[in-house]
Design a protein around this nucleic acid. Structure first.
Lengths: 88, 88
DNA sequence: CGGCATCCTTTCTGATACTG
DNA sequence: CAGTATCAGAAAGGATGCCG
């Protein structure tokens, strides 16, 4: 579920900021391509780790946030990150 | 560090059994190729998550086990596995 | 038995162009 | 702004043959 170059960065980003627009995520993930951002967001959504809200406005406005399930997973990912930070 | 198709299976296997020979690992990882087994073992060793012992016998005998560092990491991986088992 | 080298296939990722 | 489609390259993985 968390396999993919940018999935952890996305999840951690949504953990730090409860709700983010697509463009904001794109800016924050320095180096990510439009394609991978969308693709990973779709997969995370399919795995119900994040939720997507389309406000149906113009100009377009879509926001993403962690789902309850995602929030359950985060502590584990944070522990993993701690390990990788402590060790090289 | 744990990226790679078989790294988690290998680590979990070495967690269940403190010390295993190459051939035993190979048998237990149904489907793994000789190449990936060796490659992943080398990488895990380079990351100091496992340790390798060459007994210098004939016929060849090499065993692998979790390092202290590996044992530190395992609880995190187990938590992750629990999550993936609970949810799909 | 444990491992290396080579070649080939699959999977993943990125660049670019285009849409409502 | 958010997203899709297509293509090309990189990376990961597997099959096979060979060695001490």
């Amino acid at each position: 579920m968390i396999r993919g170059r940018w999935k952890l960065p996305i999840l951690f980003r949504l953990y730090a900021d409860p709700s983010l627009r697509t463009s904001q995520l794109r800016r924050d993930m320095a180096g990510i391509s439009q394609k991978m951002l969308t693709q990973h967001l779709r997969e995370l959504e399919a795995d119900r780790l994040i939720e997507r809200t389309d406000f149906g406005e113009k100009p377009l406005r879509v926001e993403y946030r962690l789902s309850d399930r995602g929030k359950q997973l985060l502590p584990v990912l944070i522990a993993a990150r701690s390990f990788s930070l402590d060790h090289g």
